[in-house]
Nucleic acid binder design. Sequence first.
DNA 1: ACATATAGTGTCTTATAGTCACTATAATGC
DNA 2: GCATTATAGTGACTATAAGACACTATATGT
Lengths: 237, 237
Amino acid sequence: MSEKAFLEAYNPKDHDSPLVTVDAVLFTFHEGALKVLLVERANHPDRGKWCLPGGFVDMQADENLEETVIRKVKEKTGVAPPYIDQLATMGNSKRDKRGWSVTVCYTALIGYQVCEAGISTVQDAQWFDIAGLDRISLAFDHQELIRIGVERLRQKALYSIVPAYTLPDKFTLPELQHVHEVLLGKPLQKKSFRRRIEQADLLIDTGQQRTERGRPATLYRMRKHSGDHRFVANLRE
Amino acid sequence: MSEKAFLEAYNPKDHDSPLVTVDAVLFTFHEGALKVLLVERANHPDRGKWCLPGGFVDMQADENLEETVIRKVKEKTGVAPPYIDQLATMGNSKRDKRGWSVTVCYTALIGYQVCEAGISTVQDAQWFDIAGLDRISLAFDHQELIRIGVERLRQKALYSIVPAYTLPDKFTLPELQHVHEVLLGKPLQKKSFRRRIEQADLLIDTGQQRTERGRPATLYRMRKHSGDHRFVANLRE
DNA sequence: ACATATAGTGTCTTATAGTCACTATAATGC
DNA sequence: GCATTATAGTGACTATAAGACACTATATGT
C-alpha cells in the first residue's frame, strides 16, 4: 500500500488515545511572597477544588501545545506571560478519574500588576501564596506539578535571573534580590548579587529611580534574552 | 449531577484527542564518538526512514509514560537504561501526517557493551554517530529531538557527570573525561576534571585497574545518585 | 541639622577552575 | 637490562568569581 492510500484509510479514532491536557504553573511575586495562580473547577471531576489553569487541546483552534497553554493563561489573566517554559509531562492511568490522561505542564512567570486587571474580572481565578499551599487539596496531581515548578524556579535562581520575570517590567536590584532570597529561603550578599548581574550586562538602566524609604533605587528592565543567561558559578546554597 | 453519575456517563471517545506517542533519544559512547540509537520504520507514514525508538502508549499495558518508554527501549536493546530523563514534549498538528499528535520524548543513556547483544538481535535498530547525522533524513521531527537531546547532554557535561552513564559500569577517569571533551568539542584540563570529581566523592574506586597503553588507569563505578550531583561551578566553555 | 533607612561600593577573603611541569607505571624495542 | 614511549596521576601556582563586611551615598522624617 502506498503512503497516500494508507493516510486516506487512516482514522485516528480507530486507536484508543489518552486524554491530552495542558496546564500552566503561573508564578508571580507580590507583597514579599511567591504566588501561583489557581482556578476553581466548575465541572466534574474534582468540581469545586482549586487547580492549575489549563485544559484540553483544541485541535481546531491550536496549532501546537504552546498556543494551547498561552490561550489558557490568557483566558484567566488577559495577557500572555513574558516567560514560558516546558516543565514536565505527567501521564498515567490514575491521575484523572476519567481515565488514562497526559498533561503537558508549562511554567510561566508574570508581573503582578500586568495581569491584575485581567484576573479581577475572572471570578474563579486567584493568586495563592506558595507558603501554606500544601494545606489545601488541589485537583489531580497539580500539587505535585506546583512542587516541581517551585523546585525548578529555585534552581534557576541559583544560576540565572529568570525570577526577574515575576516582577513588573521595571524593577530595582534590591527587589530582584529579594525574589531570589525568598526562593532560596536565605539572605544573599548584595555585592555578589549585583556584581554578577553587572558583569554579565543583563539589565538596562532605565535612567529612572524609585524611592520608597531611604536612598532611591535605580529602575532596570530586562535586556532581550537575559533570561537565557547562565552564570558559570552558582550562588551558594 | 453527582461526580459518580458524571463519571459513569463519561466516554473519552466523545472528545477528539491527539495521538500520543513516546520516544527515546538513547545515547551511548563508543569508539570515541557519541552515538544515538535509530530504528527503521516498518510502517507508514515515513516507511523506510530512520526514527527514534518509541511508539504509542498502550493504555492496557502501561501504567504511566515512563513504563511506555522503558518498554520501547527494551524492545530494541534488551535492557533498561541506567539513566532516563524527560527531555521535551512536542505537540502540533503538522509533525505527523496522521494528524494532531503529541510525543513525550525522553533522553536515556546506556553503555555500549551492555546492550550490544540485544541490539544485534534486532534487525532494524542501529547506532548512528551524532557527527554527520544531520545529513540523513529522519522521520517526523526526530532530527530536532536529537538536537535538543545533544544540547541537554552537553549542558550537563558542564556541571555534572551524567555523561558517565554512556559508559560501561566500570570506567576510567580518562575515559569519562574523553566523553566530556567530545560533548563539549574541546579539550579539558585533567587536573580540574579529576579534582572536582574527587572532592565531590562521586565515584567508587573498584580497586581494579585497566592497562591499554602506558600506565594503568584506575577503574571506577558511579556511586548511587552521583548523576544528581551539580557542581557549584561549571567547566568553562 | 541630625537620625534613620535603604542603595550602592571598596576591598579583602575564600572557593574552585585553569595551567603546566613534574612524577608514576605500564609496554616495547634494542 | 635499560632506554624510549605512552598514558595516568599529582603538585603548586594563577585566575576568576563568590562571600563577607565595613564604608559611602542619598533619600525621608522630626
